[in-house]
Nucleic acid binder design. Sequence first.
DNA 1: ATTAGCACTCTCTGTTCACGAGTGCTAACA
DNA 2: TGTTAGCACTCGTGAACAGAGAGTGCTAAT
Lengths: 344, 344
Amino acid sequence: MLTDRQLQILQVIVDDFVTSAQPVGSRQISKKKGINYSPATIRNEMADLEELGYLEKTHVSSGRIPSEKGYRYYVDHLLQPTNISVGEINLIQSIFENQIIEIEQVIRESANILSELTSYTAILLGPNVTKHRVKRFQIVPLSKQTAVAIIVTDNGHVESQTITLPEGFDSSNIEKTVNILNERLTGVPLNILQSKLEKETYEVLNQHVYMADSIIRSLMKVASVENDSKIYFGGKTNMLNQPEFHDLNKIRQLMELMERKSQVIALFQPVEQGITIRIGSENNHMAVEDCSVITTAYSVGEEQKGAIAIIGPKRMDYQRVVTILDVMRRGLSRTLSEKLNDGQ
Amino acid sequence: MLTDRQLQILQVIVDDFVTSAQPVGSRQISKKKGINYSPATIRNEMADLEELGYLEKTHVSSGRIPSEKGYRYYVDHLLQPTNISVGEINLIQSIFENQIIEIEQVIRESANILSELTSYTAILLGPNVTKHRVKRFQIVPLSKQTAVAIIVTDNGHVESQTITLPEGFDSSNIEKTVNILNERLTGVPLNILQSKLEKETYEVLNQHVYMADSIIRSLMKVASVENDSKIYFGGKTNMLNQPEFHDLNKIRQLMELMERKSQVIALFQPVEQGITIRIGSENNHMAVEDCSVITTAYSVGEEQKGAIAIIGPKRMDYQRVVTILDVMRRGLSRTLSEKLNDGQ
DNA sequence: ATTAGCACTCTCTGTTCACGAGTGCTAACA
DNA sequence: TGTTAGCACTCGTGAACAGAGAGTGCTAAT
């Protein structure tokens, strides 16, 4: 267990290092107000903290920097809610005030504002559409062989795909198909749509229209809604301003990570209640081993969840980011849920 | 006018510098086969070429590198068609062979293959949808106040938007509206849809349904199809491997450029027939002053055009890129036009 | 017209050196 | 016993410098 004085010193070191990016020396600490010990005393404490694994040195006679364990202790025990300025809160709120705006646009804006306020990189996952329910099927013929199949969900999300029609599949066939689909599948959530189509609907369709299996196969494509949601970035290049990213290789790794959807989504895993902070190697990915990732989820209505992440250097202003993220999460959840309810 | 020997030397310098990224010296040139002059002779010629503005030195006793004017001369006069390997051609063709694939997917793949083959960054502009014609309108009600308005075009493109319905706008109103829209607007190209809606359609609608102006205002939103097309990237991080981009500032500028849609589109301007090569400052943009941008257009059917660009360092393998780009352009035009015709 | 030879310039790399910041340890002190 | 002053030691940084290597421009010879 750490003594009060050790906690105090750890806190000062983290706070100082976060802003300066320079190893913190004993003299520097002793000059901080609230600290009334000589540098020598502080050196002794720092040696202890290092032995316990909370601090590190960059070289034998440098000041100390927090280790991952040190950051972890800091975020678990020393993090205090900060006040962010009224102006900043207003900036966040301003996104939600515009009434007409589309959901997608709100999220896009949020990503930008988050990155601006934190000067780190913001990633937003759009709300998962797989829980949406089918509101209406539609098939619009384009030519004798092709048509567009459309699914509208109860939230106004639209999926579409051009499909090939079987030879001789005429408009009465289309009409029958659409009727059966709407009758049988309205209200079905997208994530189980494919299996429903394949099993129950196929039977019925087969009895009433010609070449049902061909048309079902086409429809399966539309129903295979990307189960990974859309990704929105803000401040993708912000990391280039951080001194720890003066290394080309790190930049490349990070940029490549952000190009790969699956890896970006992996950053959010596992999803937990509240705000999650993952420091450096806790992210289990080389490209972000010098980064911390702070994630949280927002909810739209009861079932759909989206997620927010801020990626910054390990030397991140955790207090500030946590506070901002919390404001944003609440705002998004409230606003998007309202929009959803308006729509039902 | 340059002598044959000067041309020969210019060509060798460009070719050599393209692969080595190092200033080329006289001794090095004299050892190339096809060159039968001593280093001293070559030095004299190089001094002349420098005086004429085709070559530059990085410092007073370095070898020479091509100036922008040198590159310009090279691409205008010395570029010879290269053969790219059969394997590479096959790789490109392979994208087009898969029959089922969607247009969007073909373009996405093309961007990736292009960046892989060139090891530069590829940008593709999707075909402009503003020339598509309306095939079908649809309004799907979600609740009493909201609905989704959908436009399907003759090419199978789908635009949708949630709209607010006027108080008391019931399903018979919706039906009437949709009928009028389809009757009046089928076949109208998207780029003039808004004005048609606002003028002619408004009149008619106003006579038959309740609160027509409110509904028209909502529909205008759907019709405001983004006139700038979708952008697809391949190998966004490839530039990080180029030695001229060891400078953080340049990287940042380039990355930021690629985040801004309008600036990316500006890179393609002006669009000209055939393949356009813009070298360094010819691009009129700081972020790409050390880059060359090679662009070309592909066509889908008769009217729609998409565009392809390759961004690399000025020290780019122009011959290879031009050849690859040409293969890709033809392939894309042919394949996408076929897909389009299948659909009509 | 071409080329060999030579002096000169500039970059690059490695070395040395002094400086400053910071530490760990010991001994003195309250 | 906890705290502090003092001191020797370590290491990173930046400047100065030297030598090697690559390449040039010029002159004189071919």
